[in-house]
Design a binder for these strands. Structure first.
Length: 281
DNA sequence: CATATGTCCTGAGAGC
DNA sequence: TGCTCTCAGGACATAT
């Protein structure tokens, strides 16, 4: 699940690997299919062992470890991955272990579904793969004007467009529903039908939702996969996500419904997110 | 180019 | 209990 708030929480959780040297890189044996590791483990190992981690950043929903060689390690948890220093949920889904020396002893990549990716890239490759042409401005940093100019011409539904990482980075399926609800915007409204006040509200609520979620250390879903620490769930509280059938707390009148857009669930309140923007011409 | 869709993988939960 | 089926946070390749 990890979206921007969960990945940022994980990044903060491992921040002290900055300054550590990588002593070893290994993949614990597992009955599961192996995750994507590029380049292949032998070359990966050769290029990271003995290097020092000089920076711990985040780009959208990925964690980026900068090495003193100029290479970067990009960790993408995708749907069910975790980046941790210790205490993984179990050993069976532990995919990669970096043995470190310094303030942290280990860095772990754990992934229940195996959709995650661990990638080592040169500076040039990083630019091509994760540069501004591929990944838009971070959702925490983007200005209102930039958000609008990047999306306003699109005919796509706003909920679907918010998931496009080239437009704005870090928003996923859950927080997209949450920020649209707080903005009072119908998720199926085409981007090119949003009014200037709607763009302003969306921008404001985007920042609010993501900052609040980071403060609460993200959110833990029904599958219990993500947690900021052992035995400790993320404490962000959803207002619409997976609350279909319940009364809307915003207007107190509507009942939250679930719809499907682009094969993904969307939750919203038909009473306070009323205008689909497709009314009579 | 912009937009839409199928797929990767494992595990949980529903239904029978 | 145990089987089979469907679905889940993301991102990318491919198709239209």
């Amino acid at each position: 699940m990890p979206e921007l708030p969960e990945v940022e929480t994980m990044r903060r959780g491992i921040a002290r690997v900055a300054g550590c040297a990588i002593r070893d890189f290994r993949r614990p044996r597992s009955r599961l299919q192996s995750i994507t590791i590029t380049p292949p483990p032998s070359e990966f190992r050769r290029r990271v062992v003995g290097r020092r981690i000089v920076g711990v950043g985040r780009i959208g929903k990925r964690i980026v470890l900068e090495l003193n060689s100029g290479d970067r390690i990009v960790l993408a948890p995708r749907m069910a991955g975790l980046v941790l220093l210790a205490d993984p949920p179990d050993r069976g889904h532990l995919r990669v272990v970096f043995e470190l020396s310094g303030l942290a002893k280990q860095l772990l990549f754990w992934d229940r579904r195996g959709l995650g990716v661990v990638r080592l890239v040169s500076a040039a490759e990083f630019e091509g793969r994760y540069g501004p042409k591929k990944i838009g401005p971070d959702a925490l940093e983007i200005s209102a004007a930039e958000l609008r100019s990047r999306l306003a011409a699109s005919r796509r539904a706003i909920k679907v467009a918010l998931l496009d990482q080239r437009a704005v980075a870090g928003i996923g399926n859950i927080y997209a529903s949450e920020m649209l609800h707080r903005s009072g915007i119908h998720p199926a409204k085409p981007c090119n039908r949003l009014s200037p006040p709607e763009w302003r509200r969306l921008h404001a609520q985007m920042g609010k939702v993501l900052r609040e979620a980071i403060r609460r250390q993200g959110s833990t879903l029904r599958d219990n996969t993500y947690r900021p620490a052992r035995d400790e769930p993320g404490e962000y509280e959803f207002r619409v996500y997976q609350r279909d059938g319940q009364r809307c707390g915003r207007c107190g009148r509507g009942e939250i419904v679930r719809i499907v857009q682009a094969q993904r669930s969307t939750f919203f309140c038909p009473a306070c997110q009323r205008d689909v923007g497709r009314g009579a011409c």
